[in-house]
Amino acid sequence: MTVSRENSKMVYQGIKDAGVRFLTALPETWLVYLLQMAEDDPQMTLIEVAKEEEAVGIAAGAHFAGTPNIMLLQNHGFLGSINGIVSLAMLYRVPLCMLIAHRGHMGEPYPWHTQGGMVTEPVLRGLGLPFDYAREPRKIGKQIHEAYTLSRSSLVPTALLLTRDLMEGDE
């Protein structure tokens, strides 16, 4: 399966429609078209990090500066960022909106993704963070808007899990 360019466009449009013009990311296969769109968009600032936990700090700095922002990362990057999420974002009530590529779940052919795929949801539940699965391209815009809105009103990190159905599509 390949990554769906059309569905990636819908995700990107959802990000733009939420009013976000500042993204942090670490490149990952499912995010490849999203990152290309962000790079080609003169309205968007894209900051690529060396490790995802940095993005929690950068997002907090952007938030303090009043800049709406979203984090793009793989679920393993989320797992690697837990201390930043807990001891910066949650501790200081800094909202984060995370769009997480949910690798390693149903249909995953690559063994190396599988453990991370199985523990992502339990970890989100353990942290008490609101999350939702994004499966349908036609709903993604609304879901991004809602995840973003809730992070801002609750001052709690929220996550949208970008699933295989969405990111690989039927192409």
Partner: peptide, 22 residues
């Protein structure tokens, strides 16, 4: 002044997010 009392390592990342947006 913002004092990052935990999350070791991220002070400079916060600084980067601030600097780029201000």
């Amino acid at each position: 002044f913002f004092y990052l009392q935990h999350a070791m390592g991220l002070a400079s990342s916060i600084g980067l997010g601030l600097a780029l947006n201000r």
